[in-house]
Amino acid sequence: MIYDAENGSAMPGRLARAEGDAATGDAATDEAYDGAGATFDLYYEIFERNSIDNQGMDLISIVHYLQGYDNAFWNGERMVYGDGDEDLPEDQRLFNRFTIAIDIIGHELTHGVTQYEAGLVYKDQPGALNESFSDVFGSLVKQRAKMQTADEADWLIGEGLFTSNVHGAGIRSMKNPGTAYNDPILGKDPQPAHMRDYVQTTSDNGGVHINSGIPNRAFFGVAKALGGYAWQKAGKIWYIALRDKLAANDDFHTAANKTFEVAAALYGKNSPAQLAVQKGWDEVGITLHLDKKQGCGKNFRQFLGWP
């Protein structure tokens, strides 16, 4: 269901498009509707998840939030989208409306899924993981909508969000973190692609949107190594890890170990999928030790109901 805040702050605002209604002709309303639908479908058809809470929760989106609101967020219950910086003269505008990229919609909705599952604390490394899971599933929504393989996908987050006044292809690049934009006004994309470049900062809850480049690049590496459609294997591993294994305060290394364990459970020890997970994390400077991790299985076997 899509509500229109009519450039004010009252939530949810006027009902603009209910479930099953025809397109309205308003770009933000229809993009939010279609994007939420594509995200629901990815979770339902591929991961057998029924909405954000897995209980069929209504997906509520609010568009046209405030004036000059160059942002989108998940408020714990709903997705909220601004129109960009439409209040500035056209030659000064940097952002288009925030529904313009389908992966932003998948990103916001995934914050809801994370809230109901791993509950990753929105700070430091757990916060950067929270951000990264949102980018991962946001990108998978886009890739599935376009039926692109890992090789064909651009792995950009927020493609088309910048206006033509900005030198940038998108907000983040999962394939090459740190290269999404380089602009005289905005500066350069600050994301690291490797642990050696991890950014220590107190801003943005400990750089959650900066250091997410590291797990983003790890996921890209896994998906690329496995080939084909990224949502089928790499996405499945990441989803099961988010749903069943990750805990609120987990850091990158713990997440790496858990995706490695899930890969073994789903596809077998030393399977190409498990080795791809190891390699993906290794490429960003997070080394998993095969022997140790292979031997950790007692609790995990119990968790899976194995003897």
Binding site: N71, A72, F73, W74, N75, G76, E108, H111, V121, Y122, K123, G127, N130, E131, S134, D204, N205
Partner: peptide, 8 residues
């Protein structure tokens, strides 16, 4: 509280 993607 720290909240996903909200401005601070």
């Amino acid at each position: 509280k720290p909240s996903p993607d909200q401005f601070y």
